[in-house]
Design a protein around this nucleic acid. Structure first.
Ligand SMILES: [Mn+2]
Ligand SMILES: [Mn+2]
Ligand SMILES: [Zn+2]
Ligand SMILES: [Zn+2]
Lengths: 178, 178
DNA sequence: TCTGAGATTGAGACTGATTCTCAATATCAT
DNA sequence: ATGATATTGAGAATCAGTCTCAATCTCAGA
């Protein structure tokens, strides 16, 4: 919301199309209109969005894009590093912008679906120690803490761990840095 | 492998059926033969196994059990606390025995599918700090580190992070405590 | 041991996200 | 502008998991 972040966001967004085009070129792929539409739609989002929700939306676009193309292009955007893919359970993949952002992990509210991001260098460091001790080379990791957010607690929402499950919809982002 | 662990394992296994029966009673459910067969099959395993693999196996049993019953009973075993459910990606649920075991997280080799368990109290503690700071009540969490195990590295197996994916089969367990 | 209310089973239909197929179409280096 | 390739979209296919429901068990009580 402040000037610095906004500026970086804009800068990143301006660079994204060029980065994607470069990625496509390097693979002998073409920059088509559907791909452009999907890229723009993805760049418009600051939240964690699912492939099928985006597909539904773009199907009704002035420039309709098919479900197949949305799935294919999101995969490309992920490979290019522009997007990051997450599995919050529930059998659907979610995406979020990755270009110009730093690694973070997630708190997932099983009451309302709200997602809160956090960064914790100490946790990251301990993970390195664990992998090193095991002779394991880490490529990526996923740390998700499921529970109830402050708002849901105030609202009295809760359930027993054994029965708990993700809400159908992921709701939004609450940033946070440790 | 040592006497103490073996003893605890046996003891735990002996208690499991009673615990499950108690759980069923408390819910007005009946202990049927299929449920017994599935319980026994689950207790026989020390690894991380998928529901569909177990269903395939039990379909060919001397006392055949249907896919539906396997899925239904694994869910019950999870709710009863005898099993824990994991999502290692790849769209399949995996289970492992939970009774008498302590919480641990997983290293997943994307070269060979081998799973290594680890425990790290410091990471757990930092997680508590994160959730507390957010006014979040943690119900459960999942920390998975994907990468290449020592064996795969020696074998020269590797791939770029963007293309990496889980092997179809989860291979086994390598225990470890930090 | 017998009985019946109520729970469970199994076969197979169904679901829903994602992937695949392939003929028609768009892209872009030349 | 042309043509070798890559891409698209509609719909079929996949696949783990869930649901349906008539036939079949369980087990507390008689
Ligand atoms: Mn995020
Ligand atoms: Mn485990
Ligand atoms: Zn919430
Ligand atoms: Zn390996």
């Amino acid at each position: 919301m402040n000037g610095k972040d906004g500026g970086e966001r804009e800068m990143t967004r301006a660079q994204a199309p060029a980065a994607f085009e470069k990625f496509l070129r390097g693979r002998g792929l073409k920059l088509t209109r559907p791909r452009w539409v999907i890229l723009e739609a993805a760049l418009d989002r600051r939240d964690h969005f699912s492939a099928d929700e985006l597909a539904d939306r773009l199907r009704k676009n002035p420039r309709p894009v098919s479900k197949a193309s949305v799935y294919r292009t999101l995969a490309l955007l992920k490979e290019s590093g522009l997007l990051e893919e997450h599995d919050f359970g529930g059998g659907r993949k979610f995406y979020e912008q990755a270009l110009g952002r730093t690694h973070h992990d997630h708190l997932v509210c099983i009451g309302c679906g709200q997602i809160t991001e956090f960064q914790n260098p100490r946790i990251e460091h301990m993970q390195d120690q664990v992998t090193e001790r095991e002779g394991f080379v880490s490529v990526f990791h996923s740390l998700k803490i499921f529970g109830y957010c402050r708002a849901c607690r105030k609202r009295g929402v809760s359930a027993d761990p054994q029965t708990a499950h993700l809400p159908r919809e992921i709701v939004g982002i609450h940033g946070s840095t440790t």
